[in-house]
Design a protein around this nucleic acid. Structure first.
Length: 367
RNA sequence: GUGGCCGUGGUGUAGUGGUAACACAGGAGGUUGUGGUCCUCCCAUCGCGAGUUCGAUCCUCGUCGGUCACC
């Protein structure tokens, strides 16, 4: 079996730099994945993503399954050719949707029954079906189906979710290996599959989850169920305690996070991979990131609400030191104007800038 | 000039003898394995003056403004 991941630790802390091999190329860690839930990073073209320094993007099995649907994805031989992105793609399993769309779901040991929020039809996800769908998508990194309990939750609920997550992870891995054998995939074409650690804020449950998942020898390990409502302290406690326990020779992925300082903190604790809606979603709502200084400083950035009245006459770019298209072409006042007249260009320019901020931050963390 | 009708926030509309509701606009927050369409909060001494009343945005009179009809 080929080595998918190699890394070096920095002198201080647990921080590491590495290279992760995928069927669509090798990429440097730590990295941030812009989110393309439905096969598009909102507002941004493929070339722009590459120009910004994105090496991998994230999409979502549950959403793609509904639209465009597997028939189209099969005809196109997967998502890469359908959307025109030839770099690596990680797909979330839909496990998070168990949590975020919880009004419309029913979980059993067998799987998750959803009522589609689009057309109302019933969708039944199992660990096996989710792996199969991700193989159809042609994902480079597959995530297993997990159960992400809400916060707060009781110890009993968390324990139940952990047990189910482990059981599902086992089934996922078995099914994945079976399919790899059947398909006779060459080692370098073989996608990666990641396990997901749950356990809410109960560290002993999380540790047990890590131990059980480690036995299954996944290609990488994710910390899930973080940033679901708990406070900063809980988040830090989980990251600090759990990240170093994950197998060191495999990439570590902190799912769904986060704010810039959370990413920095996690990288310093040995996490390699991130995704988050924050830069893209907040951009669409006019909240933009401005770099203030070195990462070592406590407040190395600030956010501005470009819609605020105080920017009405502001001739400065969003961030004078930012090399992105938006900052090299337009003023805050113009951006504010575009937002106030509800012009689509506003969303585009804002998204380009926030992604530049995040991806530049990752570049710096890889130095 | 005479008669009718109407004057409520930036705009358009509700409403009640116990100091005002809604939408949009405006202002300020929020957003963590995606909500461009989402959430929260703020923004009116009800044209002006007087009277009746415990209390008037509401009733009465006057006044100013708008509008329609008639002379």
């Amino acid at each position: 079996m080929m080595p998918h991941f190699s890394y070096k630790t920095s002198k201080k802390d647990l921080q590491r730099r590495g290279t992760l091999d995928t069927p669509h190329g090798s990429i440097q860690t730590p990295f941030f994945m812009p989110i393309a839930t439905r096969g598009a990073v909102k507002q941004v073209t493929i070339d722009e993503l590459k120009g910004l320094g994105a090496s991998i993007i994230l999409s979502n099995t549950y959403h793609l399954f509904q639209r465009p649907g597997l028939e189209i994805l099969k005809k196109f031989n997967g998502l890469h050719s359908f959307m025109g992105w030839d770099g690596p793609i990680l797909t979330d399993s839909g496990g998070y949707q168990v949590f975020s769309l919880s009004k419309m779901r029913k979980i059993t040991d067998e799987g998750v029954r959803f009522q589609s929020e689009i057309d109302g039809r019933e969708i039944f996800l199992t660990p096996e079906s989710v792996i199969e769908t991700q193989l159809t998508i042609g994902s480079d990194i597959l995530m297993v189906l997990d159960e992400c309990p809400p916060w707060p939750c009781t110890r009993e609920e968390a324990e139940k979710a952990v047990k189910r997550t482990i059981a599902w992870a086992t089934r996922s891995k078995v099914y994945f290996e079976k399919r790899m054998k059947q398909k006779r995939i060459a080692p370098e074409k073989r996608p990666l599959v990641f396990g997901i650690v749950q356990g809410s804020t109960f560290l002993d449950l999380r540790k047990r989850c890590v131990e059980e998942l480690s036995k299954l020898d996944f290609d990488g390990y994710a910390i899930g169920g973080v940033a679901v409502g708990e406070g900063m302290e809980d988040k830090q406690t989980i990251i600090k305690a759990i990240a170093p326990l994950l197998p060191a020779d495999k990439p570590r992925y902190l799912m769904g996070l986060g704010k810039p300082e959370e990413i920095v903190f996690a990288v310093q604790n040995g996490v390699d991979m991130f995704d988050c809606v924050i830069p893209t979603r907040e951009a669409r709502h006019g909240q933009l990131y401005v770099r203030k200084g070195a990462i070592t400083k406590k407040s190395f950035y600030e956010t501005i609400k470009i819609g605020n009245e105080k920017y009405k006459f502001d001739k400065k770019p969003i961030d004078p030191h930012c090399p992105c298209y938006t900052c090299t072409h337009h003023s805050r006042a113009y951006l504010r104007h575009l937002f106030s007249i509800n012009e689509g260009l506003a969303l585009r320019l804002a998204t380009l800038h926030n992604l530049a901020f995040y991806l530049d931050l990752m570049k710096e963390l890889r130095k």
